[in-house]
Amino acid sequence: MTTAEKHDAVASPGRCCIVEAGGSACGREVEASAPLALCTRHLLQAYEHVVGEVGVTDVAPVPCAACGSRLGVHYPSGWLCAVCEWNLGDRPDYDLGAGRVDVVYYIRRGDLIKIGTSSNPRGRLAQLLYDEVLAFERGDRALEQHRHAQFAAHRAGGEWFEVNDELLEHIRVLSAGVGDPWNLHRRWVSERVASGR
């Protein structure tokens, strides 16, 4: 029997189309919900192969030490963070300074919004009285000064600005799809640590 004849013999509707190593047709019944003409055994073999190549995204067994995400990608060799691709189980060495990320922060207290900058926003914000962290934007003092000039018409004093539509729209754009701004900051830090820059 030629290879084409073997394939034709296997390719009957409702039967697994795999030709086994010995040249004989698998011929097992294909489940009605199967996306390919493969029996359960061959679907599972294909799945295991794909998992080894691309991993499986799932809830990680531990939060990422670099960015805090609970979403991971599981490979046969271990877990990677699905957000920043940090090897779960590895500890970032923040003492080397690689985790420094300058941010412009937007916080609200009552009817005022403060636009400030810090390379350590958690430490800086611990020193301030505020009601809510609205957004973070990657940038240093130059970007902060640019934002102060951009919204200067609404300055209430120092780095505090009156709530206004233009500033609220800017914050909305920065926070779109972000959820918690601290998650975004953790991702930036972990990317910085992972890149070594």
Rank of each mutant, 00 (worst) to 15 (best):
Ala66Cys: 13
Pro61Ser: 10
Cys64Ser: 07
His74Gln: 13
Tyr75Ile: 08
Ala65Arg: 04
Val73Trp: 03
Ala65Phe: 03
Cys81Pro: 06
Ser69Trp: 02
Glu85Ile: 05
Ala66Arg: 13
Gly78Cys: 10
Arg70Lys: 09
Val56Thr: 11
Ser69Val: 02
Val59Gln: 05
Trp86Gly: 02
Val56Ala: 09
Ser69Ile: 01
Cys67Val: 12
Ala82Gly: 07
Cys64Ala: 08
Gly72Ala: 03
Leu80Glu: 08
Val54Ala: 15
Cys64Arg: 09
Leu96Glu: 13
Asn87Phe: 05
Gly72Trp: 02
Val54Trp: 13
Leu71Gly: 03
Cys64Leu: 09
Asn87Met: 11
Ala82Gln: 09
Asn87Gly: 06
Ala65Cys: 04
Asp93Lys: 15
Tyr75His: 13
Cys67Pro: 05
Ala66Ser: 15
Asn87Leu: 12
Pro61Asn: 05
Ser77Ala: 14
Arg70Val: 03
Trp79Leu: 07
Gly55Asp: 08
Cys67Glu: 06
Thr57Glu: 12
Ala82Tyr: 02
Gly72Asp: 05
Val62His: 00
Gly78Pro: 11
Leu96Cys: 11
Trp79Phe: 06
Tyr94Arg: 14
Ala60Pro: 02
Pro63Leu: 01
Ser77Phe: 07
Ser77Ile: 10
Glu53Cys: 14
Gly89Lys: 00
Cys67Arg: 15
Trp79Cys: 01
Trp79Ala: 03
Asp90Gln: 15
Val54Cys: 12
Cys67Ser: 12
Ser77Lys: 11
Val56Pro: 01
Gly78Met: 06
Gly52Ala: 06
Leu88Arg: 00
Ala82Ser: 13
Pro61Leu: 09
Val54Glu: 08
Trp79Lys: 00
Gly55Ile: 09
Pro61His: 07
Cys84Gln: 09
Gly72Pro: 07
Gly78Thr: 07
Cys64Thr: 08
Val59Ser: 04
Asn87Lys: 14
Pro63Ala: 08
Ala60Met: 00
Pro92Asn: 10
Gly78Ala: 07
Trp86Leu: 02
Val73Cys: 13
Cys67Ile: 04
Thr57Ile: 14
Arg91Ala: 15
Gly55Arg: 08
Asp58Lys: 02
Val73Ala: 10
Gly52Ile: 04
Asp95Cys: 09
Val56Met: 09
Val54Ser: 13
Ala82Ile: 02
Pro76His: 00
Ala66His: 11
Leu88Val: 04
Val54Ile: 15
His74Ser: 10
Thr57Val: 15
Asp58Gly: 04
Gly68Ser: 13
Gly52Thr: 06
Leu80Cys: 07
Pro61Ala: 10
Trp79Arg: 02
Cys84Gly: 04
Arg91Cys: 10
Pro61Met: 09
Asp93Tyr: 12
Val56Phe: 13
Gly52His: 04
